[in-house]
Amino acid sequence: MHNNRGSYGSYQQQYSGSSTPTIKNPSASFDKGADFNDRDRINDLLATEKWLTDGFNVFVRETSHQELYNDVLHILNETHHACRDVFNLMFEKGWYSLHPEQPSHIAEHHQKYSGYRSQFPTQGSGQFQTGGMYSQRDY
């Protein structure tokens, strides 16, 4: 049985296979008429930010010199943060809901993919070993 919370303009598929409760704040009120309302506006802004991260992701990959690369990567990063801020605001307003996966499914997958580690081409590299060329670095 699907609950009706968030059924108005719900952008996410309803998930029916879980007995765990939905993670969602009570929905903040907004004009539910045909007019473009606050929820529509913030949702449109989120779509814009998401679209921009796609554009800047391609841009940064195609840049020529280092200074331009640094600046575009910085803009990409800030645009991601902006997406996150908007998402968090929408969640706070109760305009987004999440559905927890069943712990048994997660445990099953953990076991399965832990086993796949035996297929690593090189053994013995610790997860947090430093010094590799592609370990974390500041840009």
Binding site: R41, I42, D44, L45, T48, L52, T79, V86
Partner: peptide
């Protein structure tokens, strides 16, 4: 994006949404 965020901010009735939109405009 800046123009859209500013335009939306001016139309918003919710202050948090308005503030977020203005922040986006400035960014």
């Amino acid at each position: 994006a800046a123009k859209k965020a500013h335009s939306f901010a001016s139309q918003c009735s919710d202050n948090q949404v308005k503030y977020q939109a203005e922040q986006l405009c400035q960014m």
